[in-house]
Design a protein around this nucleic acid. Structure first.
Lengths: 213, 213
DNA sequence: TAGATTGTTAATCGATTAACAATC
DNA sequence: TAGATTGTTAATCGATTAACAATC
């Protein structure tokens, strides 16, 4: 049983799991079979106690006095995160960012399959990007269904994002990964994660503000 | 005096300020002169109490019984975030992502000026992107100095990221915005903000895991 | 004045850190 | 066995929420 033992998992814990996963796969590729929370923590920049606590909320994966078996833990976290299956994703909006995302190879290694690309611009529709042809947004609903797409990636301008989200939801998408700098509202049973690039750069500016002339 | 009143500001507060800033500029462009924490909160998806508390840690910007003067608050937050000045940034690595970032127009409206682009690949060096020519990474140090670059954006593969960061720091950069999926170590007086795209997608997968067949 | 809304203090909630018994 | 390291409980820390006096 890989679900939580008691009640729900903290958001902070879930956010750290992908970091553990990525680093453990790297450690596995280096040939190590065992890793301690101490060493894993040093590489990620998280305390060993934090790692042990996070992992313990899903089960007892380690061996006392020994550490964690790397390959085993990779498998366990993979299952916890739902990365042991294939997800079909569609990107809506093939501008600069959508194009970059469409070409991002790391996603495939996590089990995300780029199943469709959509754009409004007739000059872009029909192009082949990373082996996937760009469709007209008019075909959104039928394609979501026919290609069994579970996740929609919104890479359109802010003003169009909510309308695109509404169509994605109506078409049966279960999750949305939003890159438009606006708040998107979706029903409770649809998951949404937003990336806001201006936040990171602005907080950097905040911290630099005092120290840089 | 726009600094904190007592001691340091919570990280969570600083992370929300860019959202307030963005939304307030939008409200200003719509013509509203006054906004309440109630309405601002509704648009952003944050409680009014949270907004008042966040703002109050920098000063008393509102009028009791009235609300906040939009244009005034925009100016105040702009100063708090250090967005009332120009920052020169350089992007290192003009792959898919670096190229997309180089073309991202939103940054300019926040006061970030794309001052240089660097790549290793001779086929890319010399190209003009968004009005900026791509230089060889061999020219990194001299250009950082001559163009007065304060912020470096790392968009190179994970394996090269730390080396690039070290060179940026040695060249005198004060802040790093890192897109490579690795932990980057920098001296204490250098600020670093990392964006990790695989985290968002993986947490989406986590939440979808149970509900999607 | 009466109604509205801020700024701030107190109460609650949640997450991290510390400590240590269990055990490989 | 002795040393190492986990899993878990308790203590601390920090952030959010609630409540309300101040005041426009």
């Amino acid at each position: 049983m890989l679900n939580s033992k008691h009640g729900s998992i903290s958001r902070a814990t879930v956010d750290r799991l992908p970091l553990y996963f990525r680093t453990l796969r790297l450690i596995r590729s280096e040939g190590s079979e065992i890793v301690s929370s101490e060493e894993l923590g040093r590489r990620i920049g998280v305390t060993p106690e934090q790692i042990r606590k996070d992992l313990a909320s899903f089960g007892a994966f380690g061996k006392k006095g020994v550490g964690y078996h790397v390959a085993e833990l990779v498998n366990n976290i993979s299952q916890i995160l739902g990365l042991d299956r294939k997800w079909n994703i569609a990107i809506i909006g093939v501008g600069h960012l959508g194009w970059a995302l469409a070409n991002y190879r790391n996603f495939a290694s996590l089990g995300f399959h780029l199943a469709a690309l959509f754009d409004q611009n007739p000059a872009i529709v029909g192009q082949l990007i990373n082996g996937v042809d760009v469709l007209s947004v008019a075909d959104l609903e039928t394609t979501i269904t026919s290609r069994n797409i579970q996740i929609g990636v919104i890479a359109v301008p802010a003003g169009e994002a909510q309308a695109v989200a509404d169509r994605l939801v109506a078409a049966g998408v279960h999750g949305i990964w939003n890159f438009a700098p606006v708040r998107i509202r979706v029903p409770d049973d649809v998951q949404i994660v937003s990336e806001d690039l201006s936040v990171g750069l602005s907080t950097l500016s905040y911290h630099l503000r005092r120290q840089v002339p």
